[in-house]
Design a protein around this nucleic acid. Sequence first.
DNA 1: CATATTATCTCGCCCAGCGAGAAGATTGCC
DNA 2: GGCAATCTTCTCGCTGGGCGAGATAATATG
Lengths: 172, 172
Amino acid sequence: MNDPGPGLRTVHTLRALTVELDLLAASFAQRHGLHPTDLRALIALLDAAREGTPATPGRLGRELGLNSAGTTAVLDRLERLGHVHRSRDPHDRRRVLLAVTERAVALGQGFFGPLIGEAAALVDGLSATERATVEGFLASVREIVARHANGDGGPDGNRDGNGGAEQDAEAE
Amino acid sequence: MNDPGPGLRTVHTLRALTVELDLLAASFAQRHGLHPTDLRALIALLDAAREGTPATPGRLGRELGLNSAGTTAVLDRLERLGHVHRSRDPHDRRRVLLAVTERAVALGQGFFGPLIGEAAALVDGLSATERATVEGFLASVREIVARHANGDGGPDGNRDGNGGAEQDAEAE
DNA sequence: CATATTATCTCGCCCAGCGAGAAGATTGCC
DNA sequence: GGCAATCTTCTCGCTGGGCGAGATAATATG
């Protein structure tokens, strides 16, 4: 039971890291008048912008696990703060296109930029072999997590309007 | 922008991993009638129990970034669900000692046990050199995160009774 | 013994997110 | 073309997690 093998300590460190990253993000969000969800939304939108993926409320809500009402509220907040701009899609006028503003980009870069930059520099300072080891480790852990996510907790448990929870897996 | 240097990709993978772990935890929590905060509290309490650290509401609240009212609410929920038991500390009767129940231990082990076990096995499958590389990487990233936390967003920005948001850092 | 400090809890409020459903746009079928 | 089904987003009302303020009880400090 309490037999910490050599690997356990590493896993514990990884877990601690994720917790610390979470806390950092939360404190950053608070500092800028954002809620954790707002920050997650902003990150998702910045990612989409960088990748050239068109961003819409529906897509974003699905990504964040929010229903449409909650998604609208998030976007209202972000728009009021000047981080996001809504505009109708000319090709399908039911849709709303979401664009991040300069301000949002600056916000994201200003904070996560240095953090990511330092981490990237750290990785770049490793030898090719070491880098491969780290990447392999991260990829393997992701794979483990993905397997457990599929088996134990479906990522899309409930959605808007449609009760997807007809099986509520009552754990007593 | 779209020029991922060698290190950037690794950092991106790490970020994706943290997001996925977060989603997994959230879906697991929902599945057991817990809120994300409740699960975080439970994990913290299980950790404390495993380490032999005495757990109290104050300590827990500080760890979770909640004020005392919120902490009380979390504990009320966990106690109602039978995961935690409160008892007064005989040595300092202001304090409340928190004990996790068998049920909570089973809950945590049943879900995170296999996950952590697989990850630990993964690490154990590495050579000593590789393991050192991974551990060094994680430790370095933690150090970077810690530095940014201190410089940009103090981990104890606001606490009970003291409004930590006296400066709302209006960007621009 | 009086006072300050510590630890926890109670009360009232705010607002994030949910469910339900409305409104506008598109697609398909006749 | 016209009408219905579908899709996307938004509005409304509500629940409840978390905060601020303060109460209460116990321990330190003079």
